[in-house]
Design a protein around this nucleic acid. Structure first.
Lengths: 252, 252
DNA sequence: CCTAACATCGTATGGTGTACGGAATTGTTG
DNA sequence: CAACAATTCCGTACACCATACGATGTTAGG
C-alpha cells in the first residue's frame, strides 16, 4: 500500500508543502490546470472528515472535483503525499497566540491545541506517522510549542523530549476520548451498543476471578465514561501529572 | 476496508480470543481442519513481523499455510478479527513477574514491557485501535499493570488514568524510537538517507529565520539521535517525568 | 504556423477483502 | 451399509484500490 521507489520524488513534495512560501514553478506551456493544489487538499480533507481516512481514495477526491481519476496525479505525486499535505494544512487552521502565564498554562495550551485538532479531524489518528513530511504549518507549530517552554531552565534536548511527551500524551488521550465518544465512523456500532452486547459474554469469560483489580477499576472507569465528559477529566489528569513532573525536574 | 455488518459476529471472535480457556466447539461432522487457529495467528504474526502490517493479506497467510485463500475464513471471521487475535497473542509472549520495589520500579517495569513489545513487533504501531478486542492475555496484562500501582494511594479512576498515561507514553516513545532506528520496513530509505537528501532543501526553505528555537533544538536533537541509543534516553526522560508527576500527586 | 510542453483521462495491471456456491470429506443416523 | 447433514476447502467473482502507460487534446513560445 505504501512504498517509495528508486528515484525519490521527495523535493517535489517538499515544494508542494511549501508552495505558498516558494511558489511552485507552474510550467507555462500546456493547458491551465482546472483546479488548484489547495482545492485538491481541501476536497481530500473534507472527504476524510466526513468518511474517515480509510474511505479517502484518489478516485473519490477526483470525482468530487469533477476530474478523471488520473488527473489528480498532475497535482500530487500520490496518496501518501496527499495525506502529508492534508496534515500540514490542518496544522495551519489555528493561529499561535503569544504565550502567557506560567509553565502550567503554557503546557496546557500546547496540549489542548493538539487535543482540539484531533477532535476536529479525527482521521489524524489513523495517519501513518513514519517519517512525517515537514511543512510550514507543522514547523510553525513546533516552533510555537518550543517557545512555550523556552527559558524555563530546560536544555535543548530536554525541551525536545518534553514536547514529545506532551504531544504524545495529547494524541493518546484524544484517541481514547474519540473512541469513547462512540459513533465510530468506520464501524456500525456505538461503544455503548458494543458493551451491551458483549458485557454478559465477557462477564462469563472473566468470571474465573483472575482479574480482581481490573473488575473493580474497570467498573469505576466504565461508569465514569458512560457519564460522558470524563475523557476530558482524564485529559486533565494526565496533563497535570506531566506538568507536575516537569516542574519537579526544574526544582532539581 | 473495515466494516461490521448487521448481525455482529462478535461472540464468535470473543470465543476465538478465549479459545484456550473455553475450548471452541469444533463441530464434529465434516473433515478435520488441516491447520489450527494458532497456526493461522502464528503465520500472520511472522508475516507482519517480517513485512509489516500493510503487507499482511489473507491470501499470503493462506499461502504460507498451504491453504486456498478462502479457507482462512473457516478459522477466522475476517482480517480485522485476525489482527485482534495477533494482538492478544503477542501480549502473551512474556509473563508477568511479581512486582517488586517502589512505585518507580513498578511503573518503569510496566512501561518497559510495552516498549519492548513494540520493538519486538513494530506492526503493533500501525494497528487500528478502535474498540480493541479484549482477550485473555491483554486482560491479564491490564490486571498486572494495575497491580503495579495498587494500594499506593490512588483511587480507582486515578489508577485507570495513570495506566493510560503510562501506556500511552510507552507507545508514542516506542514509535519515535522505531522510526529513528531507520530501516523502515515499508519505505525504501533509512532515516539517515532521507535527511541527507532533504536537509539542504529544508535548510533553504526554512532559511527565512522564522524558526530560531526549532533550529537550535532540532540541531541538538538531531545530533543526539544520530549518535544512536538516544531514543532510550528519551524514553527514560519522559518516564521520569510521569513518575515524578505521579509521586507529586501522592504527596498531596 | 509549428512544435514542445502540458493537462486530462481511458485503459490496464496487479493487488486487496470477502460473498457465494460447489465439491469433497467426514461423523451420525436410519 | 446407505443416506444424510455438517463442515472444510477452494475456484470464481465482484467491487474496490493505487497507479503505470500512452493517447488525445490544449496551449504558448519560437
Amino acid at each position: 500500500m505504501d512504498d517509495a521507489q528508486s528515484p525519490p520524488p521527495v523535493d517535489r513534495t517538499l515544494e508542494l508543502l511549501w508552495r505558498h512560501q516558494v511558489g511552485h514553478p507552474q510550467g507555462s506551456r500546456g493547458p491551465k490546470q482546472r483546479v488548484s493544489v489547495d482545492e485538491v487538499v481541501g476536497a481530500a480533507i473534507s472527504l476524510a472528515d466526513s468518511e474517515g481516512l480509510a474511505a479517502l481514495s484518489m478516485r473519490k477526491v477526483a470525482q468530487r472535483l469533477g476530474l478523471g481519476a488520473m488527473s489528480i496525479y498532475t497535482y500530487v505525486p500520490g496518496r501518501s503525499e496527499l495525506v502529508g499535505l492534508m496534515i500540514d494544512e490542518v496544522a495551519g487552521e489555528v493561529d499561535h497566540p503569544e504565550h502567557a502565564g506560567g509553565l502550567r498554562d503554557r503546557m496546557t495550551a500546547v496540549a489542548r491545541q493538539l487535543w482540539d485538532e484531533y477532535h476536529r479531524h479525527s482521521w489524524l489518528l489513523h495517519v501513518q506517522k513514519a517519517r512525517p513530511w515537514i511543512g510550514p504549518n507543522v514547523s510553525k507549530r513546533y516552533e510555537w510549542q518550543l517557545e512555550a517552554i523556552d527559558g524555563v531552565g530546560l536544555d535543548d534536548l530536554e525541551m525536545d523530549h518534553t514536547i514529545a511527551v506532551l504531544t504524545g500524551f495529547a494524541e493518546s488521550s484524544a484517541r481514547s476520548s474519540i473512541e469513547a465518544a462512540g459513533a465510530r465512523v468506520d464501524s456500525g456500532m456505538t461503544d455503548l451498543q458494543w458493551w451491551e452486547i458483549n458485557a454478559p459474554v465477557l462477564g462469563r469469560l472473566m468470571a474465573g476471578g483472575d482479574y480482581p483489580i481490573s473488575n473493580r477499576v474497570g467498573q469505576a472507569a466504565g461508569q465514569a465514561y458512560e457519564s460522558m465528559g470524563d475523557s476530558a477529566r482524564s485529559f486533565e489528569f494526565g496533563l497535570a501529572r506531566i506538568i507536575d513532573g516537569t516542574e519537579a525536574l526544574l526544582r532539581r
